[in-house]
């Protein structure tokens, strides 16, 4: 029985599952990464994903057009980010407290708007909304093995992959990206070079809001055109954890995100087989994040202690 389960992990279907699970985590990861690069922390990623998910559903229902819904979701994401920027940079509130408050409100506020729209508090099932669906790429589809992976994914997954590349190029190959990284690494040096650090940080927050909103919409708009309370279930935090482990490295960021996705996949496979207790299996991805984050910090601690790395 156990053998069966483990062998199923190496089948293609598992890989496809992982790639599907990875998309929202990747969105959350780059949302956390982009602000961290500029030297601000956005811990409200989870809440922006929730708001984005709901806004996408309500928007596409209201306009009858799913892409308009996406646009509205993006607006909500950017708007929330600007709210954070305003209260933390202009009015001097602690950005961590704002983040905690937003994350806690995300559920009640979204239920509030959900209720206004549908008269229900649990899910938006009563709304018949158009969906984004998936895309088949004709040429690639026929390639053995790779074809199944690369073709037939949801549209937002392709958007995610494209964004990963575009973001990489922007951060490491363009002047804007270099200035952003300068703001995060040594804001004083950036200022003496004539860079407007505040403006760049606000910009990074807006990008973060957009990415997070997309992550949320992935959950609600793909084929299960549905918003339900608590549907983000920690994916935003996985993104923040991935950024924490990555410690500035884009490669590590993606790897960590994929790692968490693998554990989500594992937990789904295990839960389907009913060999392991279903509740514990559900907790596996969270345990994975906890585990790797702790290990990563212990390693940093030991390295600093042994004098190999200078304390920042």
């Amino acid at each position: 029985m156990l053998g069966n389960i483990f062998s199923s992990l190496f089948k293609l279907t598992f890989l496809l599952t992982v790639l599907r699970m990875a998309t929202p985590i990747l969105f959350a990861s780059i949302a956390a990464f982009v602000t961290a690069s500029a030297g601000v922390a956005n811990i409200a990623v989870e809440s922006i994903m929730t708001f984005g998910a709901l806004a996408g559903i309500l928007g596409s229902y209201a306009t009858g057009n799913v892409w308009a819904g996406v646009a509205i979701g993006l607006l909500v994401g950017a708007g929330t980010a600007l709210l954070i920027a305003f209260f933390s940079m202009r009015l001097g509130a602690d950005p961590i407290l704002i983040g905690i408050a937003l994350n806690t409100f995300a559920d009640s506020l979204s239920i509030f708007f959900l209720y206004l729209a549908t008269g229900e508090k649990g899910t938006s099932a009563s709304l018949l909304t158009p969906t984004l669906g998936s895309v088949d790429i004709p040429g690639i589809k026929s390639i053995p093995v790779l074809g199944e992976i690369l073709s037939g994914q949801y549209i937002l997954t392709y958007v995610c992959w494209i964004l990963l590349i575009v973001l990489f190029i922007m951060i490491y190959k363009t002047p804007l990206g270099m200035r952003m990284r300068a703001c995060g690494l040594n804001a004083d040096a950036a200022r003496t070079a004539g860079i407007n650090v505040g403006r760049i940080r606000v910009f990074s927050l807006v990008l973060s809001g957009l990415f997070a909103a997309l992550g949320g919409m992935y959950l609600s708009l793909n084929s299960i055109h549905l918003f339900s309370k608590g549907m983000v279930s920690g994916l935003g935090w996985m993104g923040i954890a991935a950024n924490g482990i990555a410690n500035g490295s884009y490669g590590m960021l993606l790897l960590s995100a994929l790692l968490f996705a693998v554990f989500r996949g594992i937990s789904i496979v295990f839960s389907q087989s009913a060999v392991f207790p279903v509740d514990l299996v559900r907790a596996v991805p969270y345990f994975a994040v906890f585990f790797f984050l702790t290990i990563s910090s212990i390693i940093s601690y030991l390295r600093i202690k042994s004098g190999k790395v200078e304390e920042q």
């Binding site: 920690g234 923040i240 954890a241 994040v289 906890f290 984050l293």
Partner: peptide, 12 residues
């Protein structure tokens, strides 16, 4: 160890 207590506590 300086671990991010926010993420750890939330995962827990």
């Amino acid at each position: 160890f300086g671990t991010n207590e926010m993420v750890v506590s939330l995962m827990l």
